[in-house]
Simulated assay, not measured.
Amino acid sequence: MSATLAPHYTGLFRHALDDKNRLTIPSAWRFAHGTDDVFLATPHPEGYIAVLPPAEVQKLYDKIAGMALSDGLGQDFVARFFAQTQSLWFDKSGRISLGAGLLEHAGIAKDAVLVGSLTKFNIYTPERWERVEARTSGENFGDIMRRLGL
């Protein structure tokens, strides 16, 4: 991969957690990252885990750093959000270790679906992913593309 291109997270992969709650990340997604790169796994309100790579983490960091200390509700939200968020990195075998809280939030017990969304990737239960596919298929697919300007 060219050093000038940002990593791209595309495709769909089905993997199972091992007995230590580790999940193998596709090699295509690991390729552009070094061993020191830190990702953030966040609970998404729609019931899945969103995994932000370093570039997206930096954007989030910049937004949070710009928040006024006097914004009490905003500060409370940030504290709650990051209390549920986990820093992670790839081990030597290309796995990430997910905490019990994130797995419970997403309802993941064993099987997981990893789905790229270009700038980040998401981790779903197979059932939740099927619902996403159903909502965005057929005529809805074209309507959504037009709404997004794609």
Rank of each mutant, 00 (worst) to 15 (best):
N21R: 15
Q75C: 04
F39I: 09
R128M: 08
L118R: 13
N140A: 14
A41S: 08
R22A: 01
D62L: 13
E46P: 03
D36Q: 12
L17K: 09
L12T: 13
I96R: 05
A6R: 13
L69H: 10
Y9M: 15
Q75P: 04
D71W: 09
E130R: 10
E130W: 05
R131C: 02
D143C: 07
T24Q: 08
L98N: 02
Q58K: 14
A134M: 04
A6E: 02
M145S: 10
L17S: 02
L150K: 13
L52A: 09
D71K: 11
D76F: 00
F121T: 03
L5V: 03
L118Q: 11
I64R: 08
T24M: 13
G94W: 10
E104T: 12
I96P: 01
G142T: 09
A6G: 06
D37S: 14
A55W: 09
G149P: 07
D36P: 01
I123Q: 04
R80C: 10
T85S: 14
R135D: 12
Y124A: 07
K59I: 00
F31P: 05
G138S: 07
Q86A: 06
K120H: 12
G66V: 02
V115H: 11
F141E: 12
T24E: 11
L52C: 08
K110D: 11
D111F: 01
S87V: 00
T136N: 13
S97W: 03
A134G: 02
S70H: 10
V38T: 12
S2E: 10
W29G: 04
R135Y: 05
R30W: 03
R14G: 07
L69W: 07
G66Q: 11
R128Y: 06
G34N: 08
I49Q: 00
